[in-house]
Nucleic acid binder design. Structure first.
Ligand code: ZN
Ligand code: ZN
Ligand code: ZN
Ligand code: ZN
Lengths: 131, 131
DNA sequence: CTCGTAATGGGATTCATTTTCATATAGCCT
DNA sequence: AGGCTATATGAAAATGAATCCCATTACGAG
């Protein structure tokens, strides 16, 4: 990340790395409190923006439109299948989509083409637990 | 749509059909006023929800998270390439993605799998007009 | 250590969307 | 046609994520 390494940013990175699934800024804020490192909400948002800008996070939106963040593996962005019930996510093998998006973008006459691809469903565990 | 056919719902459908691109609820509300058929904002939202529930609309989110609606062609949902600058959109041939999403969903053990696919870029016209 | 500047945070603000609830009306029944 | 009732409307208030403001703090270069 470009800026200074403050106590708060270190904490955001550490707690975020400890999350195996997508978290919202608000959740992260609460978890930081719980971890004994209170960080202002504005600062959480700023840290997330910085991480997003430098490509260290994958971002999705839940059904309410809230942004959810997850640390991105080193080798490029991923797309995920997320359980609408419990929130657990698994990364997908999305080569097919990456190539499709690239081709469509190239053929379109548009520049700076970006893509959003998200899958959601109900995972096996949640299906079983649902009366 | 399930419910009653009121003056307001008719107007929403009519104005929406006259839009060749994605519109937000707020924009639609303004256009209804301009068209001489004032409709309460709540009612616009309710009508859009109803249309969405019955699969008559395609929905995307702009970069600010605002929901944008566009009438869906009769034969199933579409995915779009949208200009981040002017908002113009063109439907894509997304067979490849549909099949990929279906396969991935089937292999995942998740049920009720849904997908979101959006492409955005800057259209030729906007690229030219950009100093 | 000193200083300049970037970063922080609490509160206020914005703004799309939702909710509330009193009123209006579509559409069925007689 | 006239009445009735579940449904729909809309103005205003509530909600809630995200952003802005700005006085204060503290990183880190020199
Ligand atoms: Zn689940
Ligand atoms: Zn991708
Ligand atoms: Zn454009
Ligand atoms: Zn599709």
């Amino acid at each position: 990340m470009g800026g200074r390494l403050t106590r708060q940013r270190a904490a955001v990175l550490r707690v975020l790395a400890g999350c195996q699934d997508f978290v919202s800024a608000q959740e992260l804020h609460v978890r930081l409190d719980a971890a004994g490192v209170p960080v202002g909400l504005s600062t959480v948002y700023r840290a997330l923006h910085a991480l997003e800008r430098t490509g260290q996070l994958d971002v999705v939106r839940d059904e309410a439109g809230e942004r959810l963040y997850r640390p991105r593996p080193a080798d490029g962005h991923r797309h995920y299948l997320i359980c609408r019930c419990c929130g657990r996510s698994r990364p997908l093998d999305s080569d097919v989509v990456e190539r499709w998006a690239e081709r469509v973008g190239a053929e379109s006459g548009f520049s700076a083409v970006e893509h959003t691809v998200e899958l959601s469903g109900v995972c096996a565990r949640c299906t079983g637990a649902r009366p």
